[in-house]
Write a protein that binds this DNA or RNA. Structure first.
Lengths: 181, 181
DNA sequence: TGAGTGTAGTTGACAGGTCAACTGAACTGG
DNA sequence: CCAGTTCAGTTGACCTGTCAACTACACTCA
């Protein structure tokens, strides 16, 4: 018989909740990523970065801002942006008022790419996450998950920001023709 | 004004739920990993593998079984096991009845390591996840998250399996002395 | 004004994982 | 019984991200 302490023992429902939390996340993120790569050659992180830029003033953000939002290190962001610059989706712009900062700015190509990829990505989130719940249940989930550490930061959200701003509205995917006004 | 389609638009509560889901996961996993590395030199994946082995018959599993459970590729598992073998926590054992399979078997050192790390890990899950909820709420979460694709597989669970089997009971952390009967 | 400190970004070395190609062993049907 | 196929595992090439060290600039205060 094992010695157990009430305070640190995982059992029953707590176990279920935690397992489902971890497992579902692994599965869903993996599939979203696979879809996006297959159809648009973008990773979810790439997408996320393009989206942040699209929502930003003048479609540009300093590297450090991107690093905070994505929860990547500054060097991680440098390399990710290198890749997107290579694809022509982003360009680097230096800052007039502070020579230390360098902006990543979304190009027109990048914006177009984002719009196309948005269709895929939003549809994926619908299919893998949202369709499993009623409006009430989504409300419950939002409340419960919102209590966890890290939730509610400006970070680590992927397609989630669709609809956050007027700018983003133009990106909310119309899965049909993906038309934007 | 943007053109939007009802079926693929993310908004309001759905947005909140999805964001919290993603963000909280990133934050929690990152912190659990940091704790485990700092205190025991193990990643969460390492821990997970040791745990699967501890729960298995004769404390050993074929590589392919580990690869399924962890959601790593077979080559990923080969390399992860290489590392744990190097630390003396696991040893490779060939299979008598099928020369293709090679078992990973937990050593006594590995078992001891797992017991120690379990204290840290379970305490972390308590602190970062469980304490934010009542029993009822955990039940709700288990039900809701259990519906998502991937939940309920035998995969991607980390400390979660504490308590799944009699074997695992001996690993359920007593955060005090970590004593085991 | 200029020394010291803090901040933004990049770079080299490396860790951890994937994919594709391979080896060797085990089933299967003429 | 042996040719073809499938399966388990490893390996090489590569990708993505981290950490630590570094550059270059900006702020502060005597």
């Amino acid at each position: 018989m094992a010695v157990t302490s009430e305070s640190t023992r995982l059992e029953g429902t707590a176990l279920e909740a935690w397992r489902s939390y971890l497992q579902s996340h692994a599965g869903i993120v993996r599939e979203l990523d696979a879809d996006l790569i297959a159809q648009h050659g973008l990773t979810v992180r790439d997408y996320e970065v393009l989206l942040y830029l699209a929502q930003a003033e003048e479609r540009r953000l300093p590297m450090s801002a991107l690093s905070e939002r994505t929860m990547l290190t500054r060097s991680g962001i440098t390399r990710l942006i290198d890749g997107l610059v290579g694809q022509g989706l982003i360009e680097r712009v230096s800052c007039a008022s502070d020579a230390r900062v360098s902006y990543a700015r979304l190009t027109d190509t990048g914006y177009e790419k984002l719009r196309q990829a948005g269709c895929t990505h939003v549809a994926g989130i619908q299919r893998l996450f949202l369709t499993h719940y009623s409006a009430d249940e989504l409300e419950q989930l939002a409340v419960l998950l919102g209590r966890l550490p890290g939730a509610g930061l400006g970070a680590a959200c992927t397609a989630a920001d669709h609809g956050c701003t007027a700018e983003a509205d133009t990106l909310a995917a119309d899965s049909g023709g993906c038309s934007v006004s």
